[in-house]
Design a protein around this nucleic acid. Structure first.
Length: 748
RNA sequence: GCGUCCUUAGCUCAGUGGUAGAGCGCUUCCUCGACACGGAAGAGGCCAUAGGUUCAAUCCCUAUAGGACGCACCA
C-alpha cells in the first residue's frame, strides 16, 4: 500500500480517536491484564478536573500529555489502566463568572434572578463549557475512560460530599463557630486563606493621639470602638503603664475609657510600639482579644459600610468615610502626623477581586487540631501505617502520609513547602455564601430557628443543627415543621478533596474502590498543592484511612514568550485546538514534554511545534521507506551477526527509555526516543541497509527482518508520546501477530 | 524577615564528580527513488562571580550578584 508523503493529521486524528474510543480499551474493564496479582496489575490516575467554567489552554494540555503518556505506557506494559476524567464545578470561580456575564448582558444580579433561576443559568453555562472541554481533551488524544466521567456536582459526588460532611461532623472535626474569616464584600462570601492574593499598596499611615499614647494606623475608619491599647510587656518606654490599667481619654466621637493590655504580639520596632485593637476586623487583633478575653465589636457591616458605633459616620461606606474621619481627627487635634508613603500589602480575593475585609462570622469550619479516632475502611490498603483506633489530628495525618514516605512528591522539594504550609495551617472555613455548590447538609427547625439574611449582618444560630445526608422527613425539634436547609454552600475544594474516591463510587464499597484506590500518580501543577493535594490527603486519610495517591508529580508551569504564566486570569492562554489544527496533536504533545522537567517552567513557541511536526513527518517517511522496500514474498529470516548487534543496541536504548518513564523522567524519555529514531535509525541504520534492501542485495531477509522489527518496536516506544501517527502507521505494517490497535500492543 | 529554585551555545532549555548536550537559528555543500517538514559537513560555551572540598568541580560546600517563586508579618 502506497502512503502519501505526509501524515494528514487534520483528517486522521479525529478518526483514530473515535476508533480508539469505540474499541472500549480506554475502559480498563475491557483490558486483559498480564499477571493476576492485583497490585502489579493495575494503574490508576484521576484527571485533575478542570473548572467547568472555562475552556482549556496549553497549560492544561501539559497535564493531559504527561498523564496520557503514563496511561498509554502502562497499558503497553500490560496493566489495566484506569484514567478517570471529570470536571469541577469550581463554586466561587464559576459563580463569579456567570454573575458577571449576566450582569453584563441583562444588568441583573443573582438576587434579581433568585436562587433557582440563577442556578439554572449556571447549569446551562457549565454544560456548554464542559462540551468544549471534552472536545479539547479528545483532540489531545487523551486515553480517558469516558464511561466513568464524573462531575463534582453530579448526584453521586454530591452524595459523597454529604456523607463526608456528616462523618466529619459526627467525629467533631466540623464545627460551627464565630471566628474571624476573610469576607469579600463584593461577592458577599467568605474566602479561604489560600484564595487570598496579597497586593502591594502605598497608603497614608496616620499617627493619632490616643490619650497619653500615639498609635499608628492605615485604617482610621476601623478605630471607633477601640477601647484596648496594647503594648509589649518588655517595652521600657511604656513601663509605667500596667496591664489592665484604665485610662480616660478623648477619642473620635467623645471621651472613652481605655484599658491597657500587654501582649508579646506587638512589634516594638514598628510604628510607636503601641496599637489599639479591632478584633472584629483583624486576624492578629482577634487572637489578642481571645488571649485576654476582651470584648469584640463589629464596626463595618458586610457591605463595607460603617455601623452605628461610628456615630455621625454610620451608614457611610468606609472608602467615603476615611477622609472625613481624618478631617475630624485633625480638627480635634488628635492627628499627630501622616506618613504618606507607607507601603504594605492589601488582601484581595483572587477569584473575582474584591478587597478582603476580615469579619467575625458564624461559619462552618474543619478543625485541623482536634484529635479523632483513626479508622481504615474495609477496602482500604495498608499504605498508611496508622493503627485503627489511634488518636491523631488532621494536621498530623497530613504530615505522616508524606513524612513516612507513603506519598512521594516529585520534585522532592515540594515536600518542604507542603510541611511549611501545614505548620501554619489554621482551621479551614468551609462555608460560602454562594448559591452555586454543594448546599451544606444541615437542617434547622423552621419554628424554633430564626433565619436572618447574611446581608443583614450578624447571624446567630442558637439552636442545635441537625446534620443529615438527606433532609429529615420529620423535624426532630418540633416534630411538625418543614425543616430548612442551611443557606450556604461548601468551599469547592471540599468536594475536590474527595475526588480520588468519590469518583470510584464511595461511600459504596465498590469493586472500583478495591481495585483502583489508592491511585498511582497524581499529576498536577504546583500552584494547587495546598488547595487540592493537601486536602485530598486530609479527606482520604480521615474518611477511608488511606492515602489518595502514591506519587505526586508536579509539572512545570507553561509560560508564554514573555515569560508570563499561562492562566485563565492572565487571559494569555492559547487554545490547544489552534495548535493542533496547525501542527497536529502529536507535535504539540512532543513540544510540551521535551525539555519539561518536573517542577521547572517551560516556554513554548511556534519553532518548537514546527520542529516536532517535522519529526512526525520523519517517522512517517521512514515507515514509508520500510514499506516501499518490503518484499512480502521473503520469509522472515534469522538475523545475521551484525544485525543482531544493532537490534541488541536498540533494545538497550529502549530499556533506558522505559526506565526514564517509570521514574517520571518523561522529558528524557521523549528526547531519547526522538533522538534514536531520527539520528540512529533513520540517519544511520536505514542508510547502511539501503544497499542490502535493494534487489540482489546480500542478506536481504535479515536486513528486512531487522528493519521491520526496529520499526515496529519503535512505534510502540513512541506511541505514548505521539499516539496518532504511530497508530496510523502501525495499521499499515504487514505483521503476522498484529493486534487490533497499537494502543494495546505490548512493550516488551 | 524565613525558605526554595534558577543563572550552561545567539534564543529556549536538558544534563553529568572525569573530553560539554538538544531543538530552533547560523555557515558551506547536496534535489541522491523514504523524507527539503530532507541529507552531509561545520562554526559557536572559562557551564553567573569569588573562595573551599577533591587526584579531578559546570556538578558537592560557603559566600556574593542578578532573576523567579513560596510562606509569614505589616497596628
Amino acid at each position: 500500500m502506497e502512503l502519501d508523503k505526509k501524515f494528514d493529521f487534520k483528517d486522521r486524528e479525529k478518526e483514530i480517536y473515535s476508533r480508539w474510543e469505540q474499541s472500549g480499551f480506554f475502559n480498563p474493564d475491557k483490558l486483559k491484564a498480564k499477571s493476576s496479582k492485583l497490585e502489579a496489575d493495575r494503574f490508576s490516575m484521576v484527571l485533575p478536573p478542570p473548572n467547568a467554567t472555562g475552556t482549556l489552554h496549553l497549560g492544561h494540555a501539559v497535564m493531559l500529555v504527561v498523564q496520557d503518556i503514563l496511561a498509554r505506557f502502562n497499558r503497553l506494559i500490560g496493566k489495566k489502566v484506569l484514567w478517570l476524567p471529570g470536571t469541577d464545578h469550581a463554586g466561587i470561580a464559576t459563580a463569579e463568572k456567570v454573575e458577571k456575564l449576566i450582569y453584563k448582558k441583562e444588568k441583573k444580579t443573582r438576587h434579581d434572578l433568585g436562587r433557582e433561576e440563577f442556578l439554572n443559568r449556571v447549569d446551562e453555562f457549565v454544560e456548554d463549557s464542559r462540551d468544549v472541554i471534552r472536545k479539547q481533551v479528545r483532540a489531545m488524544g487523551a486515553s480517558l475512560d469516558w464511561d466513568r466521567e464524573s462531575f463534582t456536582l453530579d448526584d453521586k459526588r454530591s452524595r459523597a460530599v454529604n456523607e463526608a460532611f456528616k462523618r466529619m461532623y459526627d467525629a467533631g472535626l466540623i464545627y460551627r463557630g464565630n471566628r474571624i474569616v476573610n469576607w469579600d464584600p463584593k461577592m458577599q462570601t467568605t474566602v479561604s486563606d489560600d484564595e487570598i492574593e496579597w497586593e502591594d499598596g502605598v497608603d497614608p499611615f496616620y499617627y493619632i493621639k490616643y490619650g497619653p499614647f500615639v498609635i499608628a494606623t492605615a485604617r482610621p475608619e476601623t478605630k471607633f470602638g477601640d477601647k484596648y491599647v496594647v503594648m509589649h510587656p518588655e517595652d521600657k518606654r511604656y513601663a509605667e503603664y500596667k496591664d489592665g490599667q484604665e485610662i480616660e481619654l478623648e477619642w473620635i466621637n467623645g471621651p472613652i475609657k481605655a484599658t491597657v493590655i500587654k501582649d508579646k504580639a506587638i512589634d516594638m520596632e514598628f510604628g510607636t510600639g503601641v496599637m489599639t485593637i479591632t478584633p472584629w476586623h483583624d486576624n492578629t487583633d482577634f487572637d489578642i482579644a481571645l488571649r485576654h478575653d476582651l470584648d469584640k465589636e463589629q464596626i463595618i457591616d458586610l457591605n463595607g459600610k460603617l455601623l452605628p458605633v461610628a456615630g455621625e459616620f454610620a451608614g457611610m461606606h468606609i472608602s467615603k468615610a476615611r477622609p472625613l474621619i481624618v478631617e475630624k481627627l485633625k480638627e480635634k487635634g488628635l492627628l499627630e502626623k501622616v506618613d504618606e508613603k507607607y507601603s504594605h500589602r492589601v488582601a484581595k480575593n483572587s477569584r473575582g477581586g474584591g478587597m478582603i475585609e476580615p469579619q467575625i462570622l458564624d461559619q462552618w469550619f474543619v478543625d485541623v487540631n482536634k484529635k479523632f479516632e483513626f479508622k481504615k475502611a474495609d477496602f482500604s490498603t495498608d499504605s498508611l501505617e496508622i493503627k485503627d483506633g489511634k488518636e491523631l489530628t488532621l494536621k498530623e495525618l497530613m504530615q505522616r502520609a508524606v513524612r513516612e514516605g507513603k506519598i512521594k512528591f516529585l520534585p522532592e522539594r515540594f515536600e518542604k513547602i507542603y510541611f511549611h504550609w501545614i505548620d501554619n495551617l489554621r482551621d479551614w472555613c468551609i462555608s460560602r455564601q454562594l448559591w452555586y455548590g454543594h448546599r451544606i447538609p444541615v437542617f434547622y427547625c423552621s419554628k424554633k430557628q430564626e433565619f436572618q439574611n447574611h446581608e443583614s449582618g450578624i447571624m446567630n444560630y442558637e439552636e442545635k443543627a441537625v446534620v443529615e445526608t438527606v433532609k429529615p422527613k420529620e423535624c426532630p425539634v418540633c416534630g411538625e415543621c418543614e425543616m430548612r436547609q442551611d443557606q450556604d454552600t461548601l468551599d469547592t475544594w471540599f468536594s475536590s478533596g474527595l475526588w480520588t474516591f468519590s469518583t470510584l463510587g464511595w461511600p459504596e464499597e465498590t469493586e472500583d474502590l478495591k481495585l483502583y484506590h489508592p491511585t498511582d500518580v497524581l499529576e498536577t501543577a504546583p500552584d494547587i498543592i495546598f488547595f487540592w493535594v493537601a486536602r485530598m490527603i486530609l479527606m482520604s486519610g480521615f474518611l477511608i484511612g488511606d492515602i489518595p495517591f502514591k506519587n505526586v508529580y508536579f509539572h512545570g508551569l507553561l509560560r508564554d514568550k514573555e515569560g508570563k504564566k499561562m492562566s485563565k486570569s492572565a487571559n494569555n492562554g492559547v487554545d490547544p485546538i489552534q495548535v493542533i489544527e496547525q501542527y497536529g496533536a502529536d507535535a504539540l504533545r512532543m513540544s510540551l514534554i521535551v525539555g519539561n522537567a518536573a517542577g521547572s517552567d517551560l516556554v513554548v513557541s511556534d519553532d518548537k511545534f514546527r520542529a516536532y511536526r517535522n519529526f512526525v513527518t520523519k517517522v512517517w517517511n521512514a515507515t514509508r521507506f520500510v514499506l516501499m522496500n518490503y518484499d512480502d514474498s521473503l520469509e522472515e529470516g534469522e538475523l545475521i551477526e551484525e544485525d543482531r548487534k544493532i537490534l541488541d543496541e536498540f533494545r538497550v536504548a529502549k530499556d533506558g527509555i522505559k526506565e526514564h518513564v517509570k521514574n517520571f523522567r518523561l522529558h528524557l524519555a521523549a528526547e531519547e526516543a526522538y533522538h534514536y529514531f531520527w539520528h540512529t535509525f533513520a540517519d544511520k541504520i536505514i542508510e547502511d541497509l539501503k544497499p542490502r534492501l535493494k534487489e540482489g542485495g546480500e542478506n536481504r531477509e535479515s536486513a528486512q527482518t531487522l528493519i521491520m522489527t526496529l520499526l515496529k518496536e519503535q512505534l510502540v516506544m513512541l506511541h505514548p508520546f505521539m499516539p496518532f501517527v504511530t497508530e496510523e502507521l502501525y495499521q499499515q505494517l504487514p505483521l503476522k501477530d498484529k493486534k487490533g490497535f497499537l494502543m494495546i500492543e505490548s512493550w516488551n
